[in-house]
């Protein structure tokens, strides 16, 4: 009996979407900080930004840090917390304008018939039984 209780308690404590945590942002538009705030954050960190864009619901910035290293950072649009910070190989020339991050590469490698934006993350939606993303095919 005690064992059952423990198991039940454990299960109840599990948040439903826990297994699907990712580094996307889902902030309502009203809570977004302006681009100037991102620029200020960059200034505070000593970064020189070349580009600010929005990707996966987060701000994504590219530029160089105070030491001149190439960086790419993902920033929460509401709290301006740096979610991800990547240093790029500096030997490479500046080819940032053709934005070749993994996502674009995946897009290029995409096979025909598969929806271009087939989801990689689980939908946050109570209708979905298991929280797994739908499989989508256009014929």
């Amino acid at each position: 009996m005690k064992k059952t209780l423990t198991v039940l308690a454990l299960l109840a404590a599990l948040p439903a979407g826990m297994a699907f945590a990712d580094d996307d942002c889902s902030v309502p538009l009203a809570n977004w900080q302006p681009r100037e705030a991102v620029e200020r954050l960059a200034q505070d960190n000593g970064w020189t930004l070349r580009r600010i864009k929005i990707d996966d619901g987060c701000y994504e910035v590219k530029g160089r840090d105070a030491t001149g290293r190439e960086i790419k950072a993902k920033i929460d649009p509401a709290t301006l917390r740096v979610i991800k910070l990547k240093y790029k190989n500096d030997d490479r020339d500046d080819d940032d304008d053709d934005d070749d991050d993994d996502k674009d590469r995946a897009r290029r490698d995409r096979k025909d018939g598969v929806s271009p934006a087939a989801p990689s993350t689980a939908p946050r939606n109570p209708l979905f039984g298991n929280g797994a993303p739908p499989t989508v095919l256009v014929k």
């Binding site: 934006a117 989801p119 095919l137």
Partner: peptide, 17 residues
Amino acid sequence: NGITGASVGAGRTLEIT
């Protein structure tokens, strides 16, 4: 969020599982 894809062309079939 996470359940968006491309638009569907005329005459095509969208199959979602």
